[in-house]
């Protein structure tokens, strides 16, 4: 089992979720986060004072999958989020020790989907 964490552009969320649905990955946790990478921020100006945001709004997806879904999940995220420009984000793949479905007490691969 793997735990996939992806940080993407906020306006790409819809395309990513759509790409994930197409490969039957429907469960995820989504949050709005701030992050910094190599991308320069949008310049914001308040009463003439420029604020070049070093922290940018991003969206973070967290998805737990069984091994056979790892590749399709990563590929779907890339497909939905890639523009080819700096700032498209990153995907992290972590080993996952265990999963528990709280309602039934099921554990491991059975509890993931």
């Amino acid at each position: 089992m793997k735990y996939i964490v992806a940080v993407i552009q906020p306006h790409k969320l819809e395309e990513v979720t759509q790409a994930l649905e197409e490969v039957d990955v429907n469960l995820m946790t989504v949050s709005t986060v701030l992050g910094r990478g190599r991308q320069k921020g949008h310049t914001e100006v308040y009463r003439g004072v420029k604020e070049v945001g070093t922290l940018l709004k991003k969206v973070k997806l967290e998805i737990a999958v069984n091994e056979e879904f790892v590749k399709v999940t990563v590929d779907a995220i890339i497909k939905g989020a890639r523009t080819g420009e700096v700032g498209d984000g990153k995907i992290f793949v972590l080993d996952l020790c265990d999963v528990v479905r709280i309602s039934s007490g099921e554990r491991g691969g059975k509890a993931i989907g």
Binding site: H11, V33, L34, H42, E44, V45, Y46, L55, K57
Partner: peptide, 17 residues
């Protein structure tokens, strides 16, 4: 997609932090 606040006015209505 990014939104008119940032692209047309270089401001945003809400901050996160």
């Amino acid at each position: 997609l990014v939104g008119l606040d940032l692209t047309q006015h270089h401001e945003s209505a809400y901050t996160i932090l």
